[in-house]
Structure formats: C-alpha cells, structure tokens
Write a protein that binds this DNA or RNA. Structure first.
Lengths: 214, 214
DNA sequence: TAGATTGTTAATCGATTAACAATC
DNA sequence: TAGATTGTTAATCGATTAACAATC
C-alpha cells in the first residue's frame, strides 16, 4: 500500500516550500504564454536552480510528471496553487496605516492573488477614520470585531518596530492564525501561529554586505 | 600567526548573514534600553534561537565576547553595523512609483537606517513629474544619470511582475551593484550583482500553507 | 577562588546535488 | 524502438546543535 503523500504528518521542508512559491509564479507566467509542458531542466534554468532540486521539490506536492514530456503546466499550476492556498481567497487585516500599511492595503498584486484586505487599523487618532481605498482606518479596539466578522486568517504588521510585538499579541488575541511581519523586530507568538518576516530592511542590509565584500 | 578573520575569501555563510541583521536590530534596542552586556543565551532567547547558533554566528564578525560577562552591547552593535553596512549611508533608487514604490520612498525606517532614496522612476507618463516627498518621479531615461550622480549602489524593483526583469536590466546597466526585488518574479543578473527577494507576496502564500496544514 | 560564559570541536541533522534505473 | 525525462536513491555539502575545555 502506498503512503498518502503530503499529509500534515509529512509536511513540506521549509527550504522547498520557499521555492514552491517561485515555481507557482513562473508556471502561471508559462500558462499566460500558452505553454503546455515544462521540464524540470527548463524550470531550473528559469529560476536559477538545478533540475535535481526542482524534481525533489515537486515530490512534495500531489502531482506527477510524465517521463519524456515533463510536467503538464496546467496541472502543475493547479497543484501548486492548492498547496500554497492560492486556489481560494484569504481575508487579511493590516495593522499600521502609515505609508507601507496603506500601500499594502491598496496593492493590486494581492487582489489578483486572492488576498483580500478586509480591514486596516491604527492607534493614532489622527489617522483613524481616514479612507484607504474602499476601507476606513479603524481604531485598535475594533480589530477583534473585524477579524471575527470576516474570518481573517492573517495579519500584516506594518507599524514601527517598537510597537510590533504588542500589535502581534493583539492580532493573535483577535484570532488571526498567522502573521506577516514587515518590521526588523523578532516577533514571538504562541505555538502554532506562524510568523513570516518580509525582510525588506534586512534585505537591504544583506545587500550592503554583499556589495561591500564584492 | 592567526588568520585574518572575515576577509572576502572567508565570507559569511548566507544562513548566518540572515541572522546578523536580527542581532543588530535587537542589540540596537538593547542599547536604547541602556544595557551594557548581553550573553549568547539572552540573545538566543530573545530571537528564538539556540545560544550555540548565536555564538557560531558571531565568530563571523571581528568582535569577541568575554568569558563570564558575555558581549559588550556597544562593541557588538558597532561590529554588526560595520559588517552590514549600517555604519554609513547608502544611496538607493526606486523603480516603480505605484503605491508600494512611493511608500518605500517615504519610509522613515529607511532614513533612520542610513538608506537614502535619491530617486524614484516610472515609465508611465501620467506619473512622471509627480512629487513623492522631496523627490520628483523621473522617466526611465533619466535613471542612469541619477544613479551616476548620486553613486547609488542599490535599486529597488517595485513594478508589476511583467516588467521586473526589464527594470532589473536597466538598473544594472545604470550602474547599481545590487537589487532588492519586491515582485514574485525571479530576477536574473550578471555574476557579481546580488539580488534579494523581499518575499511579501511569497510570504503570504507560505503562511496560507502553514495555516491550512496547522 | 569558583562559577559562568565564551570559542571551538565534533556530532547530528537537513538540504542539495549527482547518478541512474524506470518509463512513456 | 530509441531517446528523453521523470522519480528515487545515494553521496555530498552546509547548517545546527551538543559538549566541553579555556578563561576571565
């Protein structure tokens, strides 16, 4: 009897998961171009990987290639979408209505990817009540209500670093299941609540190092 | 004779480099709080790591702790700043004057970290000429001139995915030495030009996966 | 001094790559 | 069929953790 692939028990290694998002983006582009098949070697070349890595990574999704042909683009796209939650839409709240928070609330790339921002919040009285696209900035005391009402699963932390942990706590208390952290601060959460760091500022620092030591 | 630490030849492993930015952020916070000393165990607890990892990572910078005391906060901050280029300022250009590009151009957290945005560019006629804080959005044909004039070392790609590679090529041609990519697209560059992906959209997809499989 | 904490070595663990039999 | 490409196994490489002697 074969083992069921990809259950909670045998989950995807972090390194592979990070690449699946890149495969999905590229395969969606291939689909727009009308490609029907793609090989591990072609994918690898396009993304700066080895074909071996690509094949290994794709063993973690419930989809198989075909010897001699490669992977059917449409099926691959569907399988990757499913595993990355891109096959449905997600309700997301943003905390922090500064430049970055407002930009994300308006980001069209999110809309296209099924990310629906259902609320934006700030603790600054001067900002609460302002319009951001179709939304009105709410006070922090209204966060929980919005999260419950829309079933928001994710929260984006777009506040100054000093307030980041406090906002994370409020988001978790309000009921979100995962956090995207835009600050440079480390965020602690209860077990089972994943945090992903966006690494914008950190990325520039890593670049500084790489450039200086080039 | 001891070997010189940390020359171009024995550069910092990527995994460690990624954590150095987190140490720096935390150590700067400790400095604001007036702490004089910090141990590997304390740092580890604050950042969700093991003390072993912290000590290993810190062997890559030219700074030593002291048995029984730990690391002097001030010296550690200085050493980390130096290796991450946070001890000087960097000129950076942004391409793409949409919501996200404008938000980054105005991002105060950058200013505080020595990131100076010296230009913002777009190929949309309707946007060129608009003011963004103290800057005016320039056309793409003016990119090279600005990069040269300010000695901009980094470029931020904040355009739609479809234009990302083209913009990357233009930035490299204009003379920047490293790129921060805000899109989900893989960016190819000539050898020696590092690219760092900010993974905002990718991060949300990884979260989707983690939440669904929780 | 005694005890705490570093720096370092060795062991473990995980990720990547190479190689190749299976196969369409 | 012959050839190309997958899926998988084994080998290599790198990252993390454990352990402990050195030391302030």
């Amino acid at each position: 009897m074969k083992q069921a692939a990809n259950t909670a028990a045998n989950s995807i290694p972090p390194a592979a998961l990070g690449r699946l998002t890149r495969y999905l983006a590229h395969v969606q582009e291939l689909m727009r171009q009308g490609a029907e098949w793609v090989s591990s070697a072609t994918l690898a070349r396009a993304l700066g990987l080895t074909s071996s890595t690509v094949r290994q990574d794709l063993t973690h999704i419930t989809f198989s290639g075909i010897s001699k042909r490669g992977y059917r683009v449409k099926g691959l796209e569907r399988a990757l979408s499913e595993v990355l939650g891109a096959d449905r839409s997600w309700e997301v709240v943003v905390v922090g209505a500064g430049n970055l928070g407002r930009a994300l609330a308006l980001h069209e790339d999110f809309t296209r990817r099924g990310i629906h921002i259902c609320g934006i919040f700030d603790n600054d009285r001067a900002v609460v009540g302002q319009r951001v696209g179709g939304l009105t900035v709410g006070g922090m005391q209204t966060l929980r209500r919005t999260v419950r009402k829309h079933g928001a699963a994710m929260g984006i932390i777009a506040v100054p670093a000093a307030a980041a942990q406090e906002v994370a706590d409020a988001l978790v208390a309000a009921g979100v299941k995962g956090l995207l952290n835009l600050t440079l601060t480390h965020i602690a959460t209860p077990p089972g609540v994943p945090v992903i760091d966006s690494r914008i500022a950190a990325g520039l620092q890593e670049l500084s190092h790489a450039i200086r030591n080039a």
